[in-house]
């Protein structure tokens, strides 16, 4: 959570002056809603906002969601739990390719339905190979698992050495202390350098305006997580931090009908995830790229 320190005062001053000048202009123009727009335009980077500014920004977001979606959405700002670094493991011999995790993720994280986004891709793989180029991302069968196939769900690996974080030209994406790589949707300029950098296809861009079903909006949201996104920004899996920072399990874990997923604190030697890492034969995808993913695969 390092933030600008030296130039902080002067920069803040400049912003204040700019904002005030524009605010005055707006007041004289008597345009309602104009000052909200200005506040949004000049909104600070999340990591550089004071607690009061964050509070104001969240309140404004809630108002805007109420106006745009007609739903009372709560936007939280829950902080990382000290001493916790999240890790995820997935038992590929248990995954049967039902895509229940995909469905739950879309609903829980307010993912746009049209155009449709999904954080999780379940790859149908041929037995006997781990060649991703031979995988089928769009399998549609009457039943799964199909004979001769196994299933490999891929989503954000929350890399410790994340190439996407390095690529971002405006520091709009960063790794939180609990290891989750997040995006400030109000800071992202939409250049998609992170998408080019990600080796797992885990980052998704809102090409069009995201649409949500009015009745299917998850109203318990996090400012860095599942709150409804604007168009033209990049978003990604956050290990459901609006749930996991409160001790709950991620939605994909909860939805998995075969118990293939293990989630927990990597820093707790007594955690299940640690037991899996220490007693199972695990692998990580594209480990040769040295991105240090925090998502492991294992099998029985």
């Amino acid at each position: 959570m390092s933030s600008g320190d030296g130039p902080r005062v002067s920069r803040r001053g400049v912003l204040k002056v700019l904002g005030a000048a524009c605010g005055t202009a707006a007041a004289t123009a008597c345009a309602p809603g104009y000052s909200e727009w200005l506040q949004r335009f000049f909104q600070e980077h999340y990591q550089r906002m004071t607690p009061e500014e964050v509070k104001d920004a969240l309140a404004r977001m809630e108002r805007e969601y109420q106006q745009q979606l007609g739903v009372e959405v709560r936007v939280k700002d829950s902080k990382p739990i000290p001493g916790v670094r999240f890790g995820y493991a997935l038992n590929i011999s248990k995954c049967k390719g039902y895509r229940e995790c995909v469905r739950a993720c879309i609903e829980e994280n307010n993912l746009s339905r049209d155009p449709e986004l999904a954080y999780i891709r379940v790859l149908e793989m041929d037995n006997g190979t781990l060649d991703l180029e031979r995988s089928d991302h769009y399998y549609e069968h009457e039943t799964v698992p199909q004979p001769g196939k196994f299933y490999l769900p891929v989503s954000c690996m929350q890399c410790d050495n994340a190439p996407c974080v390095k690529a971002c030209p405006v520091k709009a994406t960063w790794a939180e202390p609990d290891g989750v790589v997040v995006v400030d949707y109000d800071w992202c300029i939409g250049c998609r350098a992170c998408q080019a950098a990600c080796p797992y296809g885990a980052r998704h861009f809102n090409w069009g305006t995201p649409t949500l079903p009015p009745k299917g909006i998850q109203t318990d949201t996090h400012v860095l997580g599942n709150r409804p996104r604007p168009r033209g920004v990049v978003e990604k899996c956050t290990f459901c931090l609006h749930r996991t920072r409160e001790g709950r399990l991620p939605a994909c874990h909860e939805a998995c009908p075969t118990g293939a997923r293990v989630f927990g604190n990597l820093l707790d030697p007594a955690s299940e995830i640690r037991w899996v890492l220490e007693h199972k034969t695990v692998f990580r995808l594209k480990e040769g790229l040295k991105t240090e993913p925090k998502f492991w695969y294992y099998s029985d």
Partner: peptide, 10 residues
């Protein structure tokens, strides 16, 4: 665990 229909593709 019995085979069944998956949730639709992306």
């Amino acid at each position: 665990i019995k085979p069944r229909k998956p949730y639709r593709a992306d």
